[in-house]
Design a binder for these strands. Structure first.
Length: 1033
RNA sequence: GCGGAUGUGGCGUAAUUGGUAGCCGCACCAGACUUAGGAUCUGGUGCCGAAAGGCGUGGGGGUUCGAGUCCCUUCAUCCGCACCA
């Protein structure tokens, strides 16, 4: 047995590199297929076992597609801009590029070990100027574009300038920041500055003042997904709201297309749902309410215009601009106090105190435009300024939040929707609102008797007629803040002339990231780039000092892989025409509301420019599950005591015929067990320190002694018991010495537990076994069967320290490094094991215990080709029917499973196949050659090696997928399960072409059947040919 | 609260249209070989039962000759969003 994976894998890694086996080029004779992984951010911790899961899957699929005759583009690169490198730079002064390159090199070598079939020539890196030139270029295109809602398309801003000059804003429907309305005359007399400011209202990349999440500690603005519970995800620093001038991308212009596009792509429904939710389209109406004693109107957005007659008050968000104006003098102090209170309430408090009702009456009334009733205007922070208009009409009868508010402040509740078939109840006695849209309108004048839907339509039509409102669609999606006050990101190709931002000429790209002396904001709070010397254009104009966020570089990288060295274009027309779009994208679902939305948006924009043929970037996507860390809570167990009890219970259990005394004391010595009849001392020892002492004492007394190193207790119980039996049987034994009892104890020894004492060992325990911080002993024994009969001694019965199962991370000390596994088992084993773990899309805890099975499987495969002396033994004799049946069954199964990404069952099929061939002692070339091709995508190294041993030159990856011959699969007979009343009772083998009537005859007369039929009448016999026989009695 | 997903042996899992529940692997048990090897091989292994047999896919109910699979209901866990009007 000599499967030397280390040697084999090194050999083929070198071969692939030298041969450029995986290099691809445009080839019009073959269909293309583009398989993409989400490229990694190369963190300092290196790759962990969760990373390769998706990469292995995509690699198997790529290799599979190649065998199937496709020209496969399968590239890899690095998402190199990111906060960790910058943080490290701030702390140590190391240039982020240096840290990043170091990490990339580490990642590359780690990936290389696993045997991925990436076209390494196409590797890209987002922080490389030849790459980010095109990130900047795309930004300029966004800056120079506006969005026409009418055409549902991005258009050049130059076109808009012409339109403004001719007709102003008349008849235009544009994506915009604010509603502006001006004539051509007004436009034409505007100054350059005014015109530019106006254009800013329409650009797809624009500047605006915005409340942002400012983190003083990091000196940076953070995206919503970079914040959790009011603290920054990185570092956990407090985050506050602050108004700043920021770059935005007008992603909201694409809200509808981002939503409808989901219908055209093969993505996991749950990801689509997350995106739908994130975009948050609501159809409703915008209605205007008159304010008593004011010329102003309050605009509200509602999805339930049908309930307008039930609106008994209005609520404004505390930031609403009209509050100051409309508050009456006697309420002013209270309202101001309330507004201040909500302002100081942190984001976090607001989130955690959702249930708490608070608000303040302004003293003013509005007029319900339909009922004409006076309704009070309140201020409350359950209304958010960021959604809709920051004002609502409150319908307490049919909205739970309004209901809670009305109850708290004792405001009237009017029912206007009645569930059909239910009597109308007194709404003042309600304990909850009726929010359902299922019902008939009541108490509502001209819409009475209509359904909710009909009433909504009628109200909207009426409002439009009376010019007091209109139908409106609202989105939850916000424009993306695109500025970061950081160093380590793409600089904006923007300069300021008279404070007006202009795009730099494309010919000056890339605008390279300048060197600076420190990676911190300046004293005055300017971003780090403000430290750069001469950060100005040739003409001397200052350049933007913000940099782009992480998602900038990752939003279109998949296009650049198509033509990574093109200096003149983002990508050539030829390459985009050939590669089109990503056919299969594999990555984590955690990017659902970040990267995956931005990439779609970015792609749609490039589509609008006519640069790419598909408006969706990723045709099909698969999200691999998270691999979670295991071992969570750490218990300290007195391992010697544990071993003693364990052995003691075994001895009692086995009834050895000899009485043992527990804890035998003799003078200064204490032994764990003593059998007086045969003078046997048994001592469980952790270390060797006292062994000599003990054994000399035993010798002196004429006792036999069995010293058991602790680790052996658990692992070698049977052997130990055998030893004891031997002694009882009168055989002589020697003192058993273990060379290094401390080295491995059979438990996981935690290096991270600081106060480890001599007698104790921490044991990692599965978190599921811990409830309310206390270990479930019974469950623990089941989990670790070694302890089934042992008494567990936990210190205080409490956990000592622990952490929860969660994503793998370095900080949790449970990172599993794939390198170690490759070193120990080989890359082929790692690859197959990660696939064998379970369905690709499922989250699963990482557990290396099962890897042995896969390792054995590969050795078994090797042994089909080699004898015990490791000589290559392959026969050219024709294969038998049975062997061919096994082969073709496997071809079919692997083809099916691989094509539907069921890699775990494919691995299982390989195991079955190799088991069967081993049983058949098959070493026929005719069977093993096709099998090797089948397995090559899964275990490429060993496949290549055996392929070359079979005498082939060149790589196995260039072969064709074996052809299935169904003839070998056909069976002559079928073993019918025979059931009575649906319960299987016996089996019956019959030729496959047996007629139904004949089957019935045979079954009913079968001797096994008599027992079940006896004394009963047969009601029915169901026969499904070659499936099942069921007899109803 | 809303949306989505998942519940099958001691464990990871399998069962493509409703048709033999538990494939494959781990762990375990028994044995062979062995030096008491982190190697290999053979057999066993859902639960209860000596057996016959019974019970079994989170719980309850239903449809069906037949349900892990379909329907209703309920519980638990995980993920996403979360005062979105």
């Amino acid at each position: 047995m000599d499967y030397n994976f280390a040697h084999i894998e090194e050999k083929w890694r070198d071969y692939w590199r030298a041969d450029k086996t995986y290099q691809v080029a445009i080839d019009h004779t073959r269909p293309k297929y583009y398989v993409l992984d989400m490229f990694p951010y190369p963190s300092g911790a290196g790759l962990h076992v969760g990373h390769p899961l998706g990469y292995i899957a995509s690699d198997i699929y790529s290799r599979y597609k190649r065998l199937k005759g496709f020209n496969v583009l399968h590239p890899m690169g690095y998402d190199a801009y990111g906060l960790p490198a910058e943080q490290y730079a701030i702390q140590t002064g190391t240039h982020p590029a240096e840290t990043t390159m170091k990490n990339i090199n580490r990642y590359r070598s780690q990936l290389d070990k696993i045997g991925f079939s990436f076209d390494l020539e196409r590797e890209l890196c987002t922080c490389d100027p030849i790459y980010y030139k095109w990130t900047q270029w795309t930004f300029i295109q966004l800056f120079n574009s506006y969005y026409c809602n009418h055409a549902q398309q991005a258009r050049p801003i130059s076109e808009l300038i012409d339109i403004f000059a001719k007709q102003g804003t008349k008849n235009l429907d544009l994506a915009r920041t604010k509603d502006l309305s001006f004539t051509a005359e007004t436009w034409n007399v505007m100054s350059e500055k005014e015109q530019q400011e106006t254009l800013m209202n329409y650009r797809l990349a624009y500047l605006d003042d915005a409340m942002v999440n400012w983190c003083p500690e990091l000196g940076s603005v953070l995206a919503n997904d970079e914040i959790s519970d009011g603290l920054s995800v990185r570092g956990g620093h407090p985050v506050e709201r602050k108004s700043m001038r920021q770059w935005f991308l007008r992603i909201t212009a694409y809200a509808d297309r981002l939503l409808s596009g989901l219908g055209t792509i093969e993505w996991n429904e749950s990801i689509k749902d997350i995106q739908r939710n994130w975009i948050g389209k609501s159809v409703g109406a915008s209605l205007f309410f008159d304010i008593e004693g004011s010329d102003e109107k309050i605009e509200v957005f509602t999805t339930r215009p049908d309930t307008i007659f039930g609106a008994t008050f209005m609520v404004l968000a505390p930031e609403h601009e009209l509050i100051c104006q409309i508050t009456t003098d006697d309420q002013r102090a209270d309202v101001q106090e309330y507004v201040m209170y909500t302002k100081n309430r942190s984001e976090r408090e607001r989130m955690t105190e959702v249930k708490r009702v608070s608000g303040q009456f302004t003293g003013t009334y509005a007029i319900n435009p339909f009922s004409g009733k006076r309704i009070p205007i309140w201020v409350a922070d359950y209304v958010l300024m960021g959604y809709g208009t920051g004002a609502i009409m409150a319908v307490p009868a049919h909205d739970s939040r309004d209901f809670a508010f009305a109850c708290h402040f004792n405001l009237p509740i009017i029912q206007v929707v009645s569930k059909q078939e239910e009597p109308i109840t007194d709404s003042s006695t309600w304990t909850e609102s009726y929010d359902s849209k299922d019902g008939i309108i009541i108490n509502s004048d001209f819409i009475n008797g209509l359904t909710v839907r009909e009433a909504s339509e009628k109200i909207i039509a009426e409002a439009e007629k009376r010019n007091i409102g209109k139908g409106k669609i609202n989105f939850r999606l916000r424009d993306a803040i695109f500025s970061r006050q950081r160093y380590w990101g793409e600089p904006f190709p923007i300069y300021y002339k008279n404070d007006i931002p202009y795009a730099m000429p494309e010919s000056e790209l890339p605008l390279e990231l300048p060197e600076i002396d420190a990676y911190l904001p300046t004293e005055t709070g300017e971003p780090p780039l403000a430290r750069a010397k001469n950060w100005k254009t040739k003409e001397g104009y200052p350049i933007e000092t913000n940099t782009m966020p992480g998602f900038a570089g990752s939003s279109a990288y998949f296009l650049r892989y198509m033509d990574p060295y093109n200096k003149k274009q983002f990508f050539s027309k030829e390459s985009i025409d050939y590669w089109q779009q990503v056919d299969l994208y594999i990555g984590g679902s955690e990017h659902a509301t970040g990267h995956l939305i931005y990439a779609r948006f970015w792609n749609m924009f490039l589509f609008d420019l006519g640069l790419i043929p598909e408006s969706e970037p990723f045709r099909k996507m698969i999200n691999q599950g998270m691999i979670q860390g295991r071992s969570s809570f750490v218990y300290r167990v007195n391992i010697e005591k544990l071993a003693e009890y364990f052995i003691w219970n075994k001895i009692k259990d086995k009834k050895l015929g000899v009485e043992f005394v527990q804890n035998f004391r003799d003078g200064k010595h204490k032994f764990d067990f003593f059998a007086p009849e045969i003078k046997l001392l048994v001592e469980v020892k952790r270390a060797q320190s006292s062994e000599k002492d003990v054994s000399s004492y035993a010798k002196e007394k004429g006792y036999k002694i069995l010293l058991i190193p602790v680790r052996q207790v658990i692992e070698k119980t049977d052997i130990i018991l055998q030893k004891i039996k031997d002694v009882i049987a009168g055989k002589e034994i020697e003192v058993f010495e273990d060379s290094d009892p401390l080295k491995e104890t059979g438990f996981y020894v935690s290096k991270n537990y600081p106060g480890r004492e001599f007698y104790t060992d921490p044991i990692h325990v599965d978190i599921n076994l811990v409830q309310n911080d206390v270990l479930d002993i019974d469950a623990f024994r089941k989990w670790m069967p070694h302890f089934a009969n042992a008494v567990l001694l936990l210190e205080d019965g409490k956990y000592i320290c622990g952490w929860e199962v969660e994503k793998m991370s370095k900080s949790k000390f449970n990172v599993q490094n794939p390198d170690d596994l490759v070193e120990r088992y080989g890359a082929d084993t790692l690859r197959m094991y990660e696939m064998f773990l379970g369905p690709l899309e499922q989250s699963k805890p990482w557990d290396t215990q099962g890897i042995e099975g896969v390792s054995r499987f590969i050795k078994k495969l090797w042994r089909l080709f080699h004898n015990n002396e490791n000589e290559f033994v392959i026969s050219d004799e024709p294969a038998t029917e049975k062997e061919l049946k096994t082969l073709h069954k496997t071809i079919k199964k692997i083809d099916d499973d691989t094509s539907r990404f069921s890699f775990n069952t494919a691995v299982s099929a390989f195991m079955i196949c190799v088991n069967e061939l081993t049983d058949l002692k098959c070493n026929k070339r005719a069977v093993l050659e096709p099998l090797l091709i089948l397995i090559a995508p899964y275990a490429p190294f060993v496949a290549e090696e055996l392929w070359s041993q079979l005498g082939h030159a060149g790589s196995i990856t260039k072969q064709d997928f074996p052809k299935l011959d169904e003839n070998y699969l056909s069976e002559k007979s079928f073993v019918y399960p025979v059931s009575f009343n649906g319960k299987k009772r016996f089996e019956l083998e019959l030729p496959v072409d047996t007629k139904q009537a004949e089957i019935e005859q045979i079954v009913l007369n079968a001797p096994e059947a008599a027992k079940w039929i006896e004394g009963k009448t047969i009601k029915k016999v169901i026969i499904v040919p070659n499936k099942i026989i069921n007899i109803v009695v």
